[in-house]
């Protein structure tokens, strides 16, 4: 599904080139649950953003489901990203001006899915995540765990093949964190969703099927 070949990314300050990612070679197959680990500044989030097509690399080839991502036009890349990738963040990143229901609904709006179908999908996922009672609340009215649940529901609503999660439990207490990780595991095993997560915690990494360790932008 995902294939990175000799991918590098750097910033230049003066004459000094600092590598954020250096010569990354990585393959992730459909249905995998990969955890990326490493100390702060090792390039975990950058790698995740490159995979999520939010960021470019300076060198190398990135193939996503047979498309050469770096060579696509912005619009085509947008389409790929919109239909196949869902994001989950440490800080949840819900839109505060929208209710729970509307937050979950928004990705479908951007895909121009018809109202009736959209309502069915959203109702279904709200039901499944057990947040029916919260659907008309605004994000700041929810606890961290609940917000992250909404964040995951939003990432899943458009039925993506790939979920990218940047420290999804980083802001949660251990019990909430465990619940979220259970949910990821379940999604991966029962629905075959490919998951790539960035994490600091060995325990969380253990939920996955594979661990990739990064140090100074390189896979070790």
């Amino acid at each position: 599904m995902i294939q990175l070949q000799h991918v590098s990314k750097w910033v230049t300050t003066g004459n000094v080139r600092t590598f954020l990612l250096k010569d990354i070679n990585l393959e992730i197959k459909q249905g995998e649950f990969v955890s990326i680990m490493g100390p702060s500044g090792s390039g975990k989030s950058t790698l995740l953003n490159v995979i999520g097509m939010l960021d470019d690399a300076d060198e190398g080839v990135y193939t996503f489901m047979e498309d050469d991502v770096f060579k696509l036009k912005e619009k085509q890349r947008g389409e790929l990203h919109k239909h196949h990738i869902g994001f989950v963040f440490q800080a949840y990143h819900l839109i505060d001006e929208l209710t729970v229901y509307e937050n979950i609904e928004t990705p479908l709006l951007y895909q121009s899915i018809k109202t009736s179908e959209r309502q069915a999908i959203v109702a279904d996922i709200i039901d499944r995540f057990n947040i029916v009672g919260k659907k008309d609340l605004f994000p700041p009215q929810l606890s961290g765990g609940q917000q992250q649940l909404v964040g995951i529901a939003r990432a899943l609503v458009a039925k993506p093949k790939l979920i990218l999660a940047d420290e999804p439990t980083g802001n949660l207490n251990s019990k909430q964190g465990e619940e979220i990780m259970q949910l990821f595991k379940q999604l991966n095993e029962e629905e075959g969703v490919t998951i790539v997560q960035v994490t600091h915690s060995e325990k969380n990494a253990a939920y996955g099927t594979r661990i990739i360790n990064l140090l100074d932008g390189r896979i070790v």
Binding site: G52, L54, E74, K75, G78, H81, K82, G86, F87, H93, L94, I95, D96, E97, T106, P107, Y110, Q111, R154, A155, A158
Partner: peptide
């Protein structure tokens, strides 16, 4: 934040 998220979850230009 709102604008960034909207773009990340699929909002086009």
């Amino acid at each position: 934040k709102e604008i960034g998220i909207r773009k990340i979850i699929g909002g086009s230009r």
